[in-house]
């Protein structure tokens, strides 16, 4: 791959690899890093069931969202604090995504990047609209959908970070090295991690009028999914740690994946115990002396439940990161002809 030394618009020396520009990547990182806390706050809104703390939308109690008195927000009721913060942060992510589209259009020479950036904007607008519909229609199942799409958007941002990165540009297409099994394995982790997030959202937004059967099916599906995810993610992680895939960063990612999936299982168990107490098969054993009394909406209960949801998103993000990188290493097919019209960098 040709490397062309050039001077970037910022004045710093940049190594431009087939038209690599740093700003799309930086901006994608900014969007991803802002989306992650948004998922945390969204998780807290669910944990505290504060989704209806502000009954109107897109305004806040009749105010323009951005003009709502900060004193009332910061020193008012906790539910209002969470919901308004969620909306402000979501707006920030929306604006940053608009910025991403602009930066990609202006800086990225690859034509196929443009629809990817536009899709991100479409997704963030749709997600915001869904959040608004949940409030205006007082519909809990839309909240479930909203909670399922959020992590998907985060994972999408992670994928954008990878395809805009210097690493992506540095890779050489090696279609001859294609290893279908490894590709399928990492994609299976992505699919399973996302299914788990959707099932988790079902459990966290369970309608109070739902049947016990609904909840049982959701719980058992989530448990079976956890087992499958644990097995698949561990397999992929070991593959990355031991195997010759790509560079050293894959080994590092393998360890991160292993850590996250382990933490996720632990968070999941703790979330259940802190919400519903010990499961029936241990309820007559001395272990129940630990955490014998549940405290509704206590700090520990809330933080752990939210951490479980947020860590799930992080796990999905890392799985996507790994999958896109593995696909990139094995196949250069996602890197077709550069955009001829924007070929020459400024300088």
């Amino acid at each position: 791959m040709n490397e062309k030394a050039s001077r970037s618009t910022t004045g710093k020396d940049e190594v431009l690899l087939d038209g690599y520009r740093p700003w799309p990547h930086r901006w994608a990182l900014l969007v991803a890093w802002t989306t992650f806390p948004l998922i945390w706050v969204g998780g807290l809104v669910t944990t505290y069931d504060a989704g209806m703390a502000v009954p109107d939308w897109p305004g806040t109690f009749g105010y323009n969202l951005f003009l709502y008195p900060w004193q009332t927000w910061l020193f008012g009721p906790w539910d209002l604090f969470l919901e308004h913060k969620h909306r402000l942060l979501a707006s920030l992510v929306g604006f940053l995504t608009i910025g991403l589209v602009i930066v990609v259009y202006r800086q990225d020479q690859r034509r196929w990047m443009r629809p990817l950036a536009v899709w991100a904007l479409v997704a963030v607008i749709a997600q915001g609209g869904l959040g608004g519909a949940r409030v205006l229609l007082v519909e809990r199942q839309l909240a479930m959908l909203h909670g399922s799409i959020g992590p998907g958007f985060f994972a999408y941002c992670v994928a954008l970070c990878v395809v805009t990165s210097r690493w992506w540009h540095q890779q050489k297409a090696t279609p001859g090295d294609a290893n279908g099994f490894q590709r399928v394995s990492v994609l299976a982790v992505v699919v399973l991690a996302y299914i788990q997030l959707v099932l988790g959202a079902l459990l966290r937004h369970v309608p109070e009028a739902a049947s016990t059967m609904y909840f049982e099916v959701a719980v058992w599906s989530h448990l079976i999914g956890a087992g499958l995810l644990l097995g698949t993610a561990s397999f992929v992680a070991i593959l990355m740690i031991r195997g010759p895939v790509g560079d050293a960063s894959f080994r590092w990612l393998g360890w991160v994946l292993l850590l996250l999936v382990g933490a996720q299982i632990a968070f999941g168990c703790a979330t259940w115990v802190m919400k519903y107490h010990w499961p029936t098969f241990v309820v007559q054993t001395p272990i129940t002396r630990i955490y014998a009394l549940i405290e509704a909406q206590g700090m520990l209960q809330s933080v752990i439940a939210t951490a479980h949801a947020a860590n799930g998103s992080l796990l999905l993000g890392v799985a996507v990161l790994l999958a896109v990188r593995v696909l990139r290493v094995y196949r250069g097919s996602l890197d077709p002809k550069p955009l001829a019209a924007v070929a020459a960098p400024a300088g």
Binding site: A53, G76, D79
Partner: peptide, 25 residues
């Protein structure tokens, strides 16, 4: 009724928010 709250923190749907998932509607 459904879960919600007012600007001053007055809550509604308190049973549905806290109890119904176990005790039922």
């Amino acid at each position: 009724g459904p879960v919600g709250s007012e600007e001053d923190g007055t809550n509604f749907g308190v049973y549905r928010r806290n109890c119904a998932v176990c005790h039922g509607i």
